[in-house]
Design a binder for these strands. Structure first.
Length: 264
DNA sequence: CCTATAGCCTGACGGC
DNA sequence: TGCCGTCAGGCTATAG
């Protein structure tokens, strides 16, 4: 689930639910999701403290504690936060559970446990350590910056969009949507794109991601000109009705419309 | 520098 | 119903 729009929706969800409550308890149902941090350290760092603010970089969500430290939340392919009151609403795949003084709980849910939770002192150092590129929705990431990042890149355009070291936030699903909107085949080589195509991709990128955030990252609310609700075997292009095709790019499934995006 | 592959984990889904 | 293969919105290490 979690690409940039999903994580941004998670961020706003935490902002409206989980800030400024004293953390009274931390339960660790599955320590596999803990990265560098031990169970003891996680408890010690959170208990008695509260979340003050949140930040996001690409697909990473950070919650700032009143101690000055940060809890990093990454959700892998299947995960989300869930705020709830009664334990009978506890989500099925919660791996961590934070309890607040107001009686509510925040669960870190992750079915496949591919995500990771850790504690940090320095956000900047974390981003640099992971060698993450700029967040694609950051205002400073404009067309010029986009072109610069792709300058000299020789790979396929879908791979480049998904490469978190080049730019952070886009994953498998949204890269398909961006390229569908731009009318460009996912296997197109970056160095074969002309200026106009780069402009189309950039524009599609900002539009698609902002639209998705506006619609709560819920595909059911997406415009009917979007391919996302149709990107599965047997799906049809919302514009021309052609059956969507699937090819492998960087080991992931790319879906595209052969009419709109052509064949390489 | 770039691609493909496997692995990490736990399912959901379709076919027989 | 059960078993099996395939696929799944991420990331990393490895080999070529």
């Amino acid at each position: 689930m979690p690409e940039l729009p999903d994580v941004e929706v998670f961020k706003r969800y935490l902002d409206s639910t989980s800030l400024h409550h004293r953390i009274t308890d931390v339960q660790i149902q599955s320590s596999q999701v803990l990265g560098d941090v031990s169970e003891q350290d996680l408890r010690a760092d959170l208990k008695g403290h509260e979340f003050e603010c949140t930040k996001r970089h690409g697909k990473y969500l950070f919650t700032g504690l009143d101690s000055g430290r940060w809890l990093v939340l990454h959700f892998g392919m299947t995960g989300n936060p869930k705020y709830f009151k009664d334990m009978d609403q506890e989500p099925q795949y919660d791996r961590l559970l934070f309890s607040f003084a107001n009686g509510y709980h925040l669960a870190y849910q992750s079915r496949r446990k591919l995500g990771e939770v850790a504690l940090l002192d320095d956000l900047q150092a974390f981003v640099e350590g992971k060698e993450l590129g700029p967040d694609v929705l950051d205002e400073s990431f404009d067309l010029q910056a986009f072109k610069k990042v792709l300058q000299g890149h020789r790979g396929m355009v879908k791979s480049a969009l998904m490469n978190q070291q080049l730019m952070a936030g886009i994953g498998n699903v949204y890269s398909d949507e961006i390229l569908f909107q731009a009318g460009i085949h996912p296997r197109t080589k970056v160095n074969q794109l002309d200026d106009e195509q780069l402009g189309e991709i950039f524009k599609g990128m900002k539009e698609v991601l902002n639209m998705a955030i506006d619609r709560q990252a819920d595909p059911q609310q997406f415009p009917d000109t979007y391919i996302i609700p149709h990107r599965h075997q047997g799906g049809t292009c919302p514009c021309c009705g052609a059956e969507v095709r699937r090819v492998k790019v960087s080991g992931r499934s790319a879906y595209y419309c052969p009419n709109r995006q052509g064949e390489p």
